[in-house]
């Protein structure tokens, strides 16, 4: 078997198994650490697709930022205060319905769509340089707007966290 395929299945198994545990485990900390594995698996897929930069950004933003903050928040509240954070099951019937429909649609499209495996792939964007050029030429407006949104979020967070002065 091809090394590429072996690696693909390795990452696929990691992603699927850990994602399964994220939703089924009752311990929030376990869910968070399993989510880390899931995000790692997805980063592995990006690497296999030749998108190194996206994989690294995935690690920095999701594992290094969001996930650490999440664990941080759970740790600050769980076990220190008396309330235990446990995840359980709620609204079984509507939940099952929605998930079932969505899964049906996804599996249906997967099976019905024709995969153009032999079709020539578009030339890959050359990593960092390509992304940088695109951001500064074609997508400048989006880039700027995103920057502004992030700035607003930062200022908002700072003003919420600030001590109220009378």
């Amino acid at each position: 078997m091809d090394l590429y395929l072996i690696l693909f299945y390795f990452f696929a198994i990691i992603t699927l198994v850990s994602a399964f545990f994220v939703v089924t485990t009752r311990n929030v900390i376990y869910a968070a650490f399993n989510l880390m594995l899931t995000l790692f698996g997805v980063a592995g897929f990006y690497v296999l697709l030749g998108a190194d930069f996206i994989a690294i950004v995935q690690l920095i933003v999701y594992v290094g930022g969001i996930l650490i903050l999440l664990i941080f928040g759970v740790m600050l509240t769980n076990k220190i205060t008396d309330t235990d954070i446990k995840s359980g099951f709620l609204n079984r019937v509507p939940g099952l319905l929605i998930v079932g429909t969505f899964a049906g649609i996804l599996i249906g499209t997967l099976l019905k769509s024709t995969w153009r495996i032999a079709a020539p792939l578009p030339p890959p964007v050359a990593g960092l340089v390509g992304i940088g050029n695109l951001l500064m030429t074609e997508y400048t407006l989006i880039f700027e707007i995103l920057g502004a949104v992030l700035l607003i979020a930062l200022i908002g967070a700072a003003s919420i966290a600030r001590k109220q002065s009378n």
């Binding site: 900390i29 950004v57 690690l59 740790m75």
Partner: peptide, 28 residues
């Protein structure tokens, strides 16, 4: 031979943070 070497190091060091949090929490 990754092109983004130094950024990769910054990214992967987040694993260390996760492991420290894990050790701290699991020790109870």
């Amino acid at each position: 031979g990754i092109d983004l070497g130094i950024i990769f190091i910054v990214a992967i060091s987040s694993l260390v943070v996760a492991s420290l949090l894990m050790a701290g929490w699991a020790s109870n």
